[in-house]
Amino acid sequence: MSHSADLTWLLIKDNNSFLVKRNGVQFSSEANNLLNKNSFKFSGLANNKTIGIQAAASGRGIVVSTKKTNVPAFKPSKAINKVTITKGTRKAAAAVAASTARAGYRADLRKAALARVSAVLRAQKPVKAHAKKAGKGVRAN
């Protein structure tokens, strides 16, 4: 028995364990929610097709998870397909765009997925140490 995505959203939109309300704004900490917004479009729980992008456990690369649609609702662990991508930034972005968004899976999430890929990979880069500039003037010494 499959449930409608709209019915699921009506049941979970106001109250669920992933809902975070701060300063009049609602966020969601659920898996496969690209922007962490509490909205039907980005909901990883309500939608039948979702895209999730997280940092890889090794600290290098990303893990792209998608939801399979032909798995029964009572087997949620088998419904998630995870792929690790350890290529460079451009190749990872191209792979995400080609495999999930352009292939007719969820084209409306393409921009958000690419933004998430960029943010995760940028956070994994080491911070460059800049040399401190020598001060000028009498007070600098």
Rank of each mutant, 00 (worst) to 15 (best):
D14H: 14
D14P: 11
N15W: 10
N16P: 10
N16R: 12
N16T: 04
N16Y: 08
S17T: 12
F18Y: 15
F18H: 15
L19K: 10
V20F: 05
V20Y: 12
R22I: 15
R22K: 15
R22Q: 13
N23C: 09
N23M: 11
G24F: 03
G24S: 09
G24P: 04
V25Q: 14
F27L: 11
F27E: 09
F27S: 13
F27I: 01
F27K: 14
S28R: 02
S29A: 14
A31H: 14
A31K: 13
A31Y: 09
N32Y: 08
N33A: 00
N33M: 01
N33Y: 03
N33Q: 02
L34R: 01
L34C: 03
L35R: 12
N36P: 08
K37N: 14
N38W: 00
N38T: 00
N38P: 09
S39V: 15
S39D: 15
S39E: 14
F40C: 09
F42L: 09
F42W: 14
F42A: 07
S43L: 07
S43Q: 06
G44V: 06
G44N: 09
L45N: 04
L45T: 10
L45A: 08
L45Y: 06
L45W: 07
L45P: 02
A46I: 05
A46Y: 04
A46M: 05
A46K: 00
N47P: 07
N47M: 03
N47I: 03
N47A: 00
N48H: 12
N48R: 11
N48E: 13
K49I: 02
K49G: 00
T50A: 00
T50W: 10
T50H: 04
T50I: 06
T50Y: 01
T50L: 05
G52S: 04
I53K: 01
I53Y: 03
I53T: 03
Q54A: 13
A55W: 02
A55E: 08
A56I: 06
A56F: 06
A56V: 07
A56C: 10
A57I: 11
S58G: 04
S58N: 14
G59T: 08
G59N: 01
G59P: 09
R60V: 11
I62T: 07
I62Y: 07
I62E: 08
V63K: 08
V63M: 03
V64H: 01
V64D: 07
V64Q: 07
V64L: 11
S65H: 02
S65E: 07
T66Y: 02
T66Q: 08
T66P: 08
K67H: 07
K67W: 02
K67G: 00
T69E: 13
N70P: 01
N70W: 07
V71C: 00
V71K: 01
V71F: 00
V71Q: 00
P72D: 07
P72V: 04
P72C: 03
P72H: 08
P72M: 08
A73M: 11
A73V: 09
A73W: 10
F74M: 13
F74C: 15
F74S: 15
F74Q: 12
K75P: 06
K75A: 11
P76S: 01
P76Y: 03
S77I: 11
S77G: 11
S77K: 14
S77C: 14
S77P: 10
K78F: 08
K78V: 02
K78D: 11
K78R: 15
A79I: 00
A79G: 03
A79Y: 02
A79D: 02
